[in-house]
Amino acid sequence: MHPARSIIVFTTLSGAGFGLVALLALGALAGSGSPLLWAALLALALTGVGLLSSTFHLGHPERAWRALTQWRTSWLSREGVLSIATLGLFAVQMAADLFYGMRLVPLGLVTAALATVTVYATAMIYASLKTVPRWHTRLTPACYLGFAAAGGAMLASAFAAGADGRAAGLEWLALGFLLVAWAAKGLWWFRADRIPLGSGDSRPETATRLGRYGRVRLLEPPHSMGNYLTREMVFRTARRHAAALRRAAALLGGGLPVLLLAAGLAAGGWIWPAAASLSFLLGLLAERWLFFAEAEHVVSLYYGEGERARPAGFPARPA
């Protein structure tokens, strides 16, 4: 799939943003005054910028409000409705704490639950698509939820450490979430590598239903040049690049944050969890780029992808 910059930025930032929303709603930094104010503003900025950037790839952004109407069937619509509901309740709860010193605990529980379901809805937009076998797994929401929680905990610990010098509880929480998230992502990559296009139920033979006569190969595409479908869905990434980017994602998004959080636990100070958060977000951008670029869409079967190797002696496809 074509890795659209706006969607990569959106899913990365809004994921971490909703993670932070959930933790603040659950009472991290409650009653702390200005650290809570800055953390809440950052949460709103991350989710807001994310939502805004997601409208940049639309053909008609001015009609985006219509996307709030079909929540009965569409995960994309649900995501829109849920994010607005979450952010509305979050703003009320934060304002009550910051300006009136009120701890609205039940409201916080609801807000945190809604933030979680919002991230789940984002993931389900992709996980519900049968046409992209690598996305079509419960591991996809597991990864999105894990990364959102880890990012949120890391950011919250930076603010907490800024206020108190230490934030051991939140840093341990971030480490735990980070471990769970990368375990899920490891499994996700493991699974993805085992289901290249054409190896599963959908193959050139089932796409054309000509399999009864033999193995199927594209002789001529419909047009001499590409089209919307090939640009959007038949995106190919070099294996070498993908492997290097996976290492970068795991290092920046997993390895380095673990070390920085450990340093934070040992030495204290806000700089460690803050650096961990920055590194984590950079790593996640790489992870998210790969999530799209490495995904293969079954429509590619009509464009010559996923074909089995030719028998020996048979002319190879012309370059």
């Binding site: 053909g59 008609h60 996307a67 994309l76 959908s202």
Partner: peptide, 15 residues
């Protein structure tokens, strides 16, 4: 009404 998000094209196996 279409906002041009392209999700329906992703959901279609047939292009």
């Amino acid at each position: 009404w279409c906002i041009g998000c392209g999700l329906c094209a992703w959901a279609c196996p047939y292009g």
